[in-house]
Nucleic acid binder design. Structure first.
Length: 320
DNA sequence: AATCCCCCCAACCGCGCAAAT
DNA sequence: AATTTGCGCGGTTGGGGGGAT
């Protein structure tokens, strides 16, 4: 990071101007920035086709939009990404995957492009290195969940009915490029086992909270009985419905909180009604970073995401 | 000092969704 | 209902910077 934005970037780096199809491509000049900035400040965001035409800039609507959102917008935060921001990105990425725009929404002043770049250039390696270290150091990770982690699981249950998160999962299901796992017979069976398949679609099972993970996450109830402690029913204002917490499954049951968006339309419909804006993940994470780490370790560690079945991912306190 | 090579990041591209027609 | 248009998102590209050799 630490790019000097004060000077003209067109003269320093990036692609040279290109004039194919009558449109300028490549790095924006200071003059173009000024024209675009003035126009948007005057007329507001949106209608990017009009912006491109009205300003006389030989830029595509897309290019104008991107330039504004990633560079010219006044509230964009410049400079290095702080440690706590870094931590948050890693957590959110674990939770949301490559949903850069969603992650960016939780980091005021940061753009999805910036976060995406930062992830690919810095954080990805950091996480991988840390992950491989743990793969070497710990053969079998047994985590005793604390009261805190149980608490954080409840919290996660509340986090998960996140419209955007789930919608994103849906998009992945539909995506031709990266199709999501279709629910296997096995996972479908486990779904039946899970009370999230309740005929009452207004009842949302807390175990479905792991739907944010695009993989089946099996773990034994016996090992984490406290993870299934029922929570107080909450009331969703948007839905006008009571959200009922899950009852603890029978001892010995193996829970597969598969991606519900792919296999359970009824539940999916009800979850779609949640409004992401009602929850600011960062606030919750900020409040409960420590416990969230433990929960991460418990779930991710036990469940072998990243194909490292025996070895857990590290908690974030281990990173860096 | 010169060259090589990797890193960083701005910007482009293709795709999908939703609203408008 | 079908088509068009606009927008947003995530993946990828490409070139300058700067450290390594």
């Amino acid at each position: 990071m630490g790019v000097n934005h004060s000077s003209n970037p067109a003269l320093e780096m990036g692609r040279p101007p290109c004039f194919e199809d009558g449109l300028n491509k490549g790095v924006w000049t200071a003059h173009e920035d000024e024209v675009l900035g003035n126009y948007v400040k005057l007329h507001g965001e949106g209608k990017w086709v009009n912006v491109a035409k009205a300003t006389g800039l030989k830029r595509s609507a897309k290019s104008c939009r991107l330039r504004w959102l990633n560079y010219l917008k006044p509230d964009i935060k410049r400079g290095n990404i702080a440690l706590d921001e870094e931590d948050l990105i890693i957590r959110l990425h674990r939770l949301l995957g490559n949903r850069w725009s969603l992650i960016a929404k939780r980091l005021p002043g940061r753009t999805d492009n910036e976060i995406k770049n930062y992830w690919h250039s810095t954080l990805k390696k950091k996480v991988q290195e840390s992950s491989s270290n743990h793969c070497k150091s710990k053969k079998k990770h047994v985590m005793e969940p604390s009261a805190e982690s149980a608490e954080s699981l409840k919290m996660d249950a509340c986090l998960s009915p996140n419209k955007d998160v789930i919608k994103s999962s849906s998009n992945h299901c539909k995506s031709k490029k990266k199709p999501m796992m279709e629910p296997s017979a096995e996972s479908a069976e486990s779904l039946k086992m899970d009370s999230c398949l309740s005929p009452n679609k207004d009842v949302i099972n807390c175990t479905t909270s792991s739907s944010a993970h695009p993989f089946p996450l099996p773990f034994l109830v016996d090992e984490h009985p406290e993870a299934f402690t029922s929570v107080e029913p909450s009331f969703d204002e948007g839905l006008g419905k009571e959200i009922v917490a899950a009852q603890p499954p029978e001892s010995g049951d193996e829970i597969f909180p598969v991606n519900i968006s792919c296999g359970n339309d009824a539940l999916w419909d009800s979850l779609m009604d949640f409004d992401v804006d009602q929850l600011c993940l960062s606030e919750i994470l900020d409040e409960n970073f420590a416990s969230f780490s433990e929960f991460d370790s418990m779930i991710v560690g036990e469940c072998g995401i990243n194909g490292c079945q025996d070895d857990p991912l590290p908690s974030f306190s281990d990173l860096g």
